[in-house]
Nucleic acid binder design. Structure first.
Length: 463
RNA sequence: GUGGCUAUAGUUCAACGGUUAGAACACGGGCUUGUGGUGCCUGUGAUGAGGGUUCGAUUCCCUCUAGCCACCCCA
């Protein structure tokens, strides 16, 4: 094909052009193209996200892909992995330090403050759908650009808000036939956490526990002791068995809040796993934090109680951030939110071979032979389209064969065929694509004939 | 950032160091100059890049690049 092109154009430029595996023009690492068939999964998820969000009273918001780097340093936290090592940072032509957004919440908090949303009826419930960027090393289910569905509630301190978010997340997965479990914990309020971290640090200082920790944990001990809790090294897990748990340090308010959330979840029959070791990697969380993980099914059993071989990546997560808005310069405003990654859900759906339901509307394909017929069909196509038919065509093709191939490919139910002969007679051929039978009918009767056939078809599918 | 594995047509895979690198699916053409989906015939199309060992490298070695997987962390 390539050689032909070269011969045809006799072009030297073409000879230099290597279409594949040329790193100069290849896709960037960790980025991916979503092609036609795969996009059907995304469409499914986007529709589901829209439906669910709207039912629960959320309104769609979009924010720019680019933000000031400072935004994330102040909100997400300068020392978090996301900001300190994964953020796409650069200086633009005006000399501003900007970043490709690595997460959604800061933009949404920023928008809340910037547009004076505290003047709107509270709470302000918003949902968001879009790409996020993190410069990580790609692996299964992890990309440098991924898509998140994100829900945020601003101005609502009630545990009902936390619960609703978890419920929506749970519904989202369940309705896509993905079995998930909610990991949940409470980080308490600022003061509680301060006291807890002191105690935890004391605990690890006892009798050379620190020397047994893995290198990462030694670093964590100094930088962010909370993260000692979710290390996966067996030695570190063993040590932390006896570590103090944050739930024992919650103040009365935070504890009541957390208990309420759990009670509501019980009431709604949302299965959860109280996970005292769940700490999330963003600075702004307080009180409720949660993460959604797939339920380990059939294959993932492990007899010796060790961590399952199959890695269970998080499908989504979120929590409460009552201090975030104030910290960013807004009025004190409680809030909570969660995000879930579409790519990982698509992966799950594919793994489990969950079929995508096909479009049930019957397609009518318009085929033509000869320029006169083509003109007439082009007009007819427009009329039928406006009339609500699901029409398709391949008017750029001349041969009937090629057109019917196309009709077959897209799964048309009927084809209307117009040639010279029919043009003269004032007739048209209507072909049933399943049976292959066709009938010549008066052009004027197209509508009634189609209506009749589509009605029959409906009756059959209802049975 | 650290580690492991891999690299052959558009895709999924073959080829004891030795003929012209095979096949399936996909794509194009034909059997069928006004008829698709099943059949038969047929065509296009690949060893990621560079170096080394060898009479000879898709095969062995090195470097680079890319991809996958895992750790860290996260969606």
């Amino acid at each position: 094909m390539y050689k032909k092109a070269i011969n045809k154009n006799n072009s030297k430029d073409m000879a230099d052009f290597k279409p594949r595996r040329d790193s100069k023009h290849a896709r960037l690492k960790g980025m991916k193209d979503v092609l036609f068939d795969e996009y059907r999964y995304y469409r499914l998820l986007i529709n589901k996200a829209n439906d669910l969000a709207q039912v629960y009273g959320f309104n769609r918001i979009e924010t720019p892909v680019l933000e000031r780097s400072k935004l994330y340093e102040r909100s997400t936290g300068k020392d978090t992995d996301i900001v300190s090592k994964e953020m796409y940072n650069f200086v633009d032509k005006g000399g501003d330090k900007i970043a490709l957004r690595p997460e959604a919440t800061p933009s949404l908090a920023r928008a809340y403050i910037e547009h004076g949303m505290f003047n709107m009826p509270q709470p302000v419930k918003m949902y968001w759908l879009g790409p996020l960027f993190r410069h990580e090393k790609p692996q299964s289910g992890r990309y440098r650009q991924h898509t998140q569905f994100d829900l945020e509630i601003f101005g609502d301190p009630s545990p009902v808000a936390d619960t609703q978010l978890i419920l929506i997340a749970y519904n989202f997965y369940s309705e896509l036939q993905i079995n998930v479990q909610v990991q949940i914990n409470s980080l308490g309020d600022k003061e509680d956490r301060g006291e807890y971290i002191t105690q935890l640090t004391e605990f690890y200082k006892e009798r050379g526990k620190r020397s047994k920790l893995c290198n990462d944990c030694k670093r964590r001990f100094l930088k962010n002791p909370l993260r000692l809790l979710d290390c996966k090294e067996p030695d570190c897990i063993a040590i932390r068995e006896d570590a103090p748990q944050i739930v024992d340090f919650l103040g009365n308010n935070a504890r009541d809040h957390f208990i309420k959330v759990l009670e509501y979840l019980d009431e709604l029959e949302v299965p959860y796993n109280l996970n005292p070791f769940l700490v999330r990697g963003l600075d702004y969380y307080n009180r409720t934090v949660f993460e959604i993980t797939p339920v380990i099914d059939d294959l993932g059993n492990d007899e010796n109680g060790s961590i399952s071989q199959k890695r269970q990546i998080s499908l989504g997560g979120g929590g409460r951030y009552d201090d975030l808005v104030e910290k960013m310069g807004g009025r004190p405003t409680p809030g909570c939110g969660f995000g879930l990654g579409l790519e990982r859900i698509v992966q799950k759906i594919k793994e489990k071979n969950i079929p995508l339901h096909k479009d049930k509307e019957p397609i009518i394909f318009l085929a033509q032979l000869g320029d006169q017929a083509r003109r007439k069909m082009m007009v007819m196509f427009e009329e039928m389209r406006r009339g609500g038919y699901k029409v398709r065509q391949a008017f750029t093709k001349d041969s009937l064969k090629a057109q019917l191939e196309e009709a077959n490919r897209i799964g048309a139910k009927h084809s209307l065929i117009l040639g010279q002969k029919e043009l003269i007679d004032g007739t048209i051929i209507i072909r049933d694509m399943d049976s292959g039978t066709q009938e010549v009918i008066d052009t004027k009767k197209v509508n009634s004939e189609l209506a009749k056939r589509l009605e029959e078809n409906k009756e059959i599918s209802n049975k």
